[in-house]
Design a protein around this nucleic acid. Structure first.
Length: 412
DNA sequence: CGGCGGTACTG
DNA sequence: CAGTACC
DNA sequence: GCCG
């Protein structure tokens, strides 16, 4: 709505990763009456994103504490994730991660004097909790110490767990197992089948092997050329009805990506389904001489008709930097799910979560293969539910949910 | 206090 | 099933 | 950790 923008303080992005209020809670209770949900849709991240002001400047003044704050909050999030203690840590991690992103996205300069005002959206509703985000920032401003990080900084176990979790395929559980066995860094895992009796999975071995390649960002132009390469081969294999789209952060307009996300589908005419698309395309890639390493690839047919591939490829000369392997993902969908798949794969993850939570409040399950009524707890019955609407484009999905459309470049 | 997104693949 | 991954 |  028009009047909404007027309430946005100047220089302050309305993105507050802190997904306040309705965007966080709810779930198993009765779906809200649709009009109730619609009335508070501006509280959801996937709508706030509409009202963001300009991006933060490249450089703040010398008094700015923006970066110190968001980096510390991010560290705390990482530590919660690594801790993985009581099953709630991942939610604590999410909380700190969102707070970090809120500060990171802030266009306004935050200083020791104005922080209470500028970071007001991070303030929890009373009663104030002990380890809250707000308290953490306050005590840092007052004392100069991140009390939450003190003691963790020099905890060698935590440091090792954090380090190992940077490997693709190693999550909190595996990292802790390895650290318990004595591993302290990625270097300890290089070239090994196991570490002190802890077996390394095939995925982890590849994660270690291509560790440094996977850390590199891919320039936008190269992502585009890899898409063109795969698209050309797909057309040779499947004909002109095939569609290959580069999605993910690329489709949101980012100057660089950490991988190449490809969405493939086939227009009506040749084969109406996506079945077998991924394995055939992968074979075509290999046959054309491109070096491809699998991380995950489909073993069996899926119910929904979705096919997933995660792997690495070496871009040939003229396409990209042939000295590194690039992470690439392919997901194939039947054409009827294309708008849902596009929405899902364009993200961001936070945007997807928010939109799905909004749908959930209306008793709708939104996913990359459709929108279904949540009628029963029975999973089988769930999967057999018909799609609620035949979306032709992304906008149809927003419209059906009665959400304002968000252009892909601002789905933060 | 219950809930936090929905799905696919590995082992 | 738990773990990890994708957005 | 924070919200309803």
């Amino acid at each position: 709505g028009g009047g909404y923008m007027e309430r946005v303080p100047e220089g302050v992005r309305r993105v507050d990763g802190n997904d306040s209020a309705a965007d966080e809670s709810g779930g198993e209770e009765e779906p809200l009456a649709p009009h109730r949900v619609d009335d508070c849709r501006e509280k959801f991240f996937c709508q706030k994103v509409l009202h963001q002001a300009s991006a933060p400047p490249a450089q703040f003044g010398p008094d700015a504490i923006n970066e110190e704050i968001w980096r510390s909050l991010e560290l705390m999030a990482d530590n919660f994730k690594s801790r993985n203690g009581d099953g709630q840590d991942r939610f604590r991690a999410n909380r700190f991660r969102k707070a970090s992103q809120t500060v990171k996205n802030l266009a306004a300069e935050v200083t020791r004097h104005n922080w209470r005002e500028k970071l007001l959206s991070l303030r929890q509703k009373p009663p104030a909790g002990q380890g809250s985000v707000w308290d953490a920032i306050e005590s840092w401003v007052l004392t100069g110490h991140w009390t939450r990080l003190e003691g963790q900084q020099d905890d060698p176990t935590l440091a090792a767990v954090n380090a190992l979790m940077e490997v693709w395929g190693i999550g909190p559980t595996t990292a802790r197992e390895l650290v318990a066995a004595g591993a302290a860094s990625v270097a300890d895992l290089v070239g090994r089948e196991s570490y002190q009796g802890v077996r390394l999975s095939e995925e982890v071995k590849k994660g270690v092997r291509y560790f440094s390649d996977m850390k590199l960002k891919i320039p936008r132009d190269e992502v585009g050329r890899i898409r063109d390469l795969v698209c050309g081969l797909a057309q040779q294999e499947f004909g002109p009805n095939v569609i290959v789209e580069a999605v993910g952060s690329y489709r949101r307009g980012k100057p660089q990506s950490h991988d190449v996300d490809l969405l493939i589908t086939q227009r009506e005419g040749s084969s109406p389904d996506s079945h077998g698309l991924v394995p055939k395309l992968l074979q075509r890639l290999r046959d054309s001489g491109i070096e491809v390493v699998d991380l995950k690839h489909p073993q069996s047919e899926t119910v929904s008709g979705t096919e997933v591939y995660l792997g690495l490829l070496r871009p040939p000369p003229g396409v990209g930097d042939s000295s590194v392997m690039r992470r690439f993902d392919i997901r194939a969908y039947p054409i009827r799910n294309y708008p849902y798949a596009l929405l899902h794969m364009t993200g961001s993850d936070q945007f997807n979560r928010s939109m799905r939570l909004f749908a959930k409040k209306k008793g709708i399950k939104l996913s990359d293969n459709g929108m279904r009524a949540r009628i029963s707890d029975d999973r089988r019955q769930q999967n057999e539910m018909p799609n609620m609407t035949e979306a032709k484009c992304e906008r149809d999905i927003f419209d059906f949910l009665k959400l304002d459309y968000v252009v892909r470049g601002t789905r933060a």
